[in-house]
Design a binder for these strands. Sequence first.
RNA 1: GGUGGAGUCGCCUAGUGGCCGAGGGCGCACGCCUCGAAAGCGUGUGAUGGGGCAACCUAUCCGUGGGUUCAAAUCCCACCUCCACCGCCA
Length: 425
Amino acid sequence: MIDLRTLRENPDRFRASQRARGEDDSVVDALLTLDERRRSALSGFESLRSEQKSIGKSVSRASGDERDALLARAKDLAAQVKAAEAEADALGGDLDELLMSVPNVVEEDAPPGGEDDYVVLEEIGEKPVFDFEPRDHLELGELLGAIDVERGAKVSGARFYFLRGVGARLQLGLLNMAMQQAIEAGFTPMITPVLVKPESMQGTGFHIAHDKEIYRLPEDDLYLVGTSEVPLAAYHSDEILDSDALPIRYAGWSSCFRREAGSYGKDTRGIIRVHQFDKVEMFSYCRPEEAQEEHRRLLAWEKEMLDKAELPYRVIDTAAGDLGTSAARKFDCEAWIPSQGRYRELTSTSNCTDFQARRLRVRYRDADGRPQNVATLNGTLATTRWIVAILENHQQADGSVVVPKALRPYVGLDVIEPAKKTGSR
RNA sequence: GGUGGAGUCGCCUAGUGGCCGAGGGCGCACGCCUCGAAAGCGUGUGAUGGGGCAACCUAUCCGUGGGUUCAAAUCCCACCUCCACCGCCA
């Protein structure tokens, strides 16, 4: 949620942000008008209520005719107070609803425009050159007995899969390496709930009513998370954090669930785009003035992981129109996928400034002892999708795959060899 | 799933319709005392919105949401959470 007071003081900043996102900037004026109306309704209610309270006191002291007269007046006033309060509440409700619909203010340095208007910040590593016809990740995965999408579809439907054998070992090793890196950097490891209440989902910036990506359990009014960012953001909701403890950093390990509605026909092969995957996510609570620095640190940790996986990748600065609701700035790291001849997102780090914190009421005390909203940031350390990049980039002519050095202790193998035929069809 | 109990200021607790505009204790902060500290004594001690340059003023908040009443922490209804026991179960 954006800050109404800041909006009052600097509406142009918000108009510019809306335009950078390619969204309607007239919402700013609608907000200002509604805000004005609500404040006047509120002060009307307050003075009536104040009068009602003082008359209420005199009723208890008066007697006889005087008491009857006061009672009559109080009764009349009670009705007025009720009406005034209802009006102020209604306007407040409208205002909140509109306020909740406005996405975060984008950082001024973020590139304007849509999905294709990203800026490439750097390209790192050498794209592999093969003296044989490289296989794609699914072919490799099947050859290695690592990925089984056929049975995934049989058991659960399209976009589901089994990781088996070395595939399971590769994922466990990768995520463990991510966890270990995070722990060494001072993160607190977390295994989170994957089902959350509506207020946790909304607080994090997702629209439970409209978002087509979210799996819902209406019977229980619970929602499956698409990332552990959600439980980690809501973890400290309604809390005032100890200022000395900031930044507070968590590394969350969870399964993630996405409906992938509207992506029919996209990435239908293999495990690039699936309904369920596992992820280690960094999440940081810090002071707002430190958020941009923290964002760069999260990016650096992502790059460290990519370097350890020995993957060629590039870093992009996502354009304003492609930012999520909560993000003010977003950097993605995209790994080279040889079979596709293009880069695909492996990590994404967002600076959500105080947007989520305001919705979830996560605060800290500043030097004057006043509560202030914290800033929240998140970033990916590893996901199931990384297996795609690792298999494809490190494959050899015979279909074996060289395990990146840093990963070997976690996987327990130097080279993954094609499996003997196992299991029946 | 059933039965019972409980949810008040950071923590503990008082509070069965107007004197609660929430008392006390602990903790914390500041001051006095002290060579210094402890103890003791004194003072202060929440959040949110609105108004004001400010000191300050004002409204709301006693798990949540409704209701009764001129007036609700207090009465009524529903819900949530926690605890205990019983049943069922991975």
